[in-house]
């Protein structure tokens, strides 16, 4: 069995499958830059099922309001306590958007309040170096959405380990393209995705 399988969380509310190309793109980058034995295709795992425990890193995104069911909330709490890591990216990226507000509320209810992740955190040097903190996205730089360049990601910690990582930077849009098109980019924007995977696999 491969060492790493990219898993996307399927939750009852909202549009969990709003960025269908992200898994393939991150899988491609992990295989391209590292020697990690990565599964060629990702999986979709219901957030409230026991199957989520097979995948210690899970990606969750969407545009619409997020409301976890009791089962999803309970499972997520146990998942993080056992060592799992949930990466949530706001695909909406608008001012006080519905996804942002509700996702924060649900994370706070299930696990704990999000707080700013320092830009010198180990996540930013887990593989590639990001001395300025989280890389900006073209959506931020173009002034789309909330017209802000978010200086920090947010996180909930279990000890000194990130249990939930939250992004308002809309990496889901930034990474939602076919991997073959990376050759047209001067800088591969998915490199930060590799850091995410390496961090989850080592911390």
């Amino acid at each position: 069995m491969p060492d790493f399988v990219f898993a996307t969380a399927q939750y009852d509310s909202g549009d969990w499958d709003s960025a269908p190309m992200v898994p393939a793109n991150i899988i491609d980058s992990v295989a391209r830059y590292t020697g990690i034995d990565v599964a060629p295709t990702g999986v979709i795992v219901p957030l409230g099922s026991r199957d989520i425990f097979k995948y210690p890193l899970v990606y969750l995104t969407g545009h619409l309001p997020v409301r976890f069911t009791d089962a999803e909330r309970t499972t997520l709490s146990e998942y993080c306590a056992r060592g799992g890591m949930l990466f949530i990216d706001d695909h909406n990226h608008d001012v006080d958007g519905q996804f942002h507000r509700t996702a924060w509320e649900e994370v706070a209810r299930a696990i704990g309040p999000l707080q700013d992740l320092p830009n010198d955190h180990a996540l930013y040097r887990a593989f590639f170096k990001f001395p300025e903190g989280p890389p900006t996205t073209s959506h931020e730089l173009n002034g789309w959405g909330d017209n802000l360049v978010h200086k920090h990601l947010q996180a909930v910690f279990e000890g000194d380990r990130i249990a939930v990582l939250y992004s308002s930077k809309d990496y889901s849009s930034e990474w939602n393209f076919h991997p073959d098109n990376k050759r047209f980019l001067s800088v591969d924007s998915t490199k930060f995705g590799v850091n995410l995977v390496i961090y989850a696999l080592t911390r």
Partner: peptide, 12 residues
Amino acid sequence: GHVGWESKFTIA
């Protein structure tokens, strides 16, 4: 070991 879930959770 190599980077993977087994090494991560063994260390943990």
